[in-house]
């Protein structure tokens, strides 16, 4: 097959691509932050001694971990409004889904980090009269956080990749813009190659960072 590669035409779509990059990064950062916040609450609920709360949150986590995020997105956008009567914009549905999906994974990472801290540390803190919140803030979390950072970075990498699914709801992320360009230019080869390269350029440094952090932790 003889194919004439021509990436030059993509220049005329640079603002479209710019918008896509912006959406992808904004959704990643936004849902990473909101996911971390909800994830902290999830972890605390899972660690609490209120059985009902723990059971409820465990159920929530399992639902989000055991269904594909694409199904969650579609369900949240098309099915949830029928159930609740609340119309969600594609962006809002996507934001909520990715936040909760991220939270279910972030929450488990945070919980794992907290319970990995030796129980002797709790004993030692209690023995000098520290309150539970003081112990958490000054003894447990500083140690847990170091161990959580590499898996949190990895999960954020996944979170960014998952934003490509937003295109099915017509949120103008990088992949969706690629689809627009393809349908206008009939050049999917160059367009999707470029889209893949852009994802790679954004994510490669992040995965390197995760490796570095992991190496530093294991020292």
């Amino acid at each position: 097959m003889q194919y004439q590669w021509d990436f030059g035409f993509l220049l005329q779509y640079k603002s479209l691509i710019g918008v896509g990059i912006l959406y992808t990064i904004a959704f990643t950062i936004g849902t990473a932050i909101s996911g971390l916040i909800v994830g902290c609450l999830v972890a605390l609920a899972r660690l609490s001694s209120f059985r009902i709360l723990t059971a409820f949150v465990t159920g929530f986590i399992e639902i989000f971990r055991c269904t594909p995020v694409l199904v969650q997105l579609v369900w949240c956008y098309y099915a949830l409004p029928i159930l609740t009567g609340i119309e969600l914009s594609p962006g809002a549905a996507a934001f909520i889904t990715l936040t909760l999906y991220g939270a279910s994974f972030f929450g488990e990472i945070i919980r794992g980090g907290i319970i990995s801290v030796d129980s002797g540390q709790w004993d030692a803190g209690r023995a000098i009269g520290m309150r539970r919140h003081q112990l958490m803030a000054r003894v447990v979390l500083p140690q847990a956080l170091r161990r959580m950072i590499p898996p949190l970075v990895n999960q954020t990498v996944l979170q960014l990749k998952n934003t490509s699914l937003l295109s099915v709801l017509a949120v103008p992320d990088l992949l969706y813009q690629g689809q627009l360009i393809t349908s206008a230019s009939y050049r999917p080869l160059e367009t999707y190659t470029m889209i893949a390269v852009i994802y790679f350029i954004i994510l490669f440094p992040l995965t390197r960072l995760a490796y570095r952090l992991e190496a530093r932790m294991s020292r």
Partner: peptide, 24 residues
């Protein structure tokens, strides 16, 4: 509760077999 227990423990010192120093 946590507050009462903490106040009680603050008046006693304890040393453990595994030291349990704060490593950070």
């Amino acid at each position: 509760g946590d507050k009462e227990l903490s106040a009680f423990r603050a008046r006693t010192g304890m040393v453990f077999q595994s030291f349990n120093l704060f490593p950070h």
